[in-house]
Simulated scan of single mutants.
Amino acid sequence: MPKVTAAYREARRDEIIDAALRAFAAKGFQGTSMADVIAETGLSAGAIYGHFAGKKELFAAVAGRVLDSRSTELEAQRGGGEPLPPGQIIATLLDGMRREPFSNVIVQLWAEAAVDDEMRLLVQGVFHRLRETVRARLLEWAAADPRRVDGDPEEWATRLAPVVLGLGPGYMVQRLIVDDFDDEAYLRTLIEALPH
């Protein structure tokens, strides 16, 4: 039997995450079973469980994939030029989220994390990565011209990161449940309202 390479395992894992993203986007977290994910991949149950212990771990991997895409978009938005200001950082993240087929499931993910300790730990890991991404971008902007902020840029970025991230859930929830929510205006106003 040929030896399975790390690259092959990683490609198979990515294939499973892609299929899970489609399944969760179509049916939500509660409505998606592991059988749905298995059917979506066309692989055996053993092939799936060889990479993921269960639905919660798979859901966290999908959320991590979505976060990685947002980090790539932030880098592309900067394009090697000046660091992005705070409003542009969060607007770029949210603009990317609204284009994700998985975006409507994010609110379900938060709700599950609020009542399920295992899910909370998984979501916390993804959220800590997101907060660090935002903190690093804020620090980059503040350090480029320390006169922009009051005090040490590192401390400022650390304080501001959770505040900036707090704007995301408001956007995501309103976008899902408020019929007359103007998401374009929200994103424009973020850019205007935060330091620039």
Rank of each mutant, 00 (worst) to 15 (best):
E118K: 06
D14Q: 13
I48K: 04
A20V: 03
A91R: 09
P169K: 07
L122D: 02
F29T: 04
P146R: 11
K55F: 10
L190E: 02
A76L: 00
L139K: 05
V149P: 06
H51W: 04
L122A: 14
Q77Y: 03
E112I: 13
L187Y: 14
R188A: 15
M34C: 10
R9M: 13
A39P: 07
G42I: 12
P83E: 10
I106N: 01
L93V: 15
R129F: 10
G168H: 08
I16V: 14
P86W: 08
P169C: 09
A60V: 01
D95T: 05
E140L: 11
Y171E: 01
G96N: 07
V66W: 08
R147L: 11
L130G: 05
H128W: 09
H196P: 08
A19R: 06
H128V: 15
D95M: 09
W110M: 15
D180T: 06
D36C: 10
E192C: 13
A20E: 03
V163N: 09
V164F: 08
R9C: 09
L139H: 08
A161G: 03
T189C: 13
V178E: 00
E15C: 06
A53L: 03
P195Q: 11
G80M: 05
K55R: 08
A47Q: 11
P146D: 05
V126Y: 00
E10R: 15
R98W: 09
H128A: 13
Q30T: 09
L94K: 00
A20M: 04
D18I: 03
D182G: 06
I16G: 01
I17N: 04
E75Q: 03
A60F: 00
I106P: 00
V66P: 02
R129W: 08
A193C: 11
M97V: 14
V149R: 06
L122H: 04
G87L: 01
R78W: 06
Y171L: 01
V163Y: 09
E57F: 04
V105C: 03
P162T: 12
R9H: 08
E15N: 08
K3W: 10
Q30E: 09
P153S: 13
E10G: 08
G170N: 10
V62Q: 02
L176G: 14
G31V: 04
Y8S: 14
Q108G: 11
L84A: 08
M172V: 02
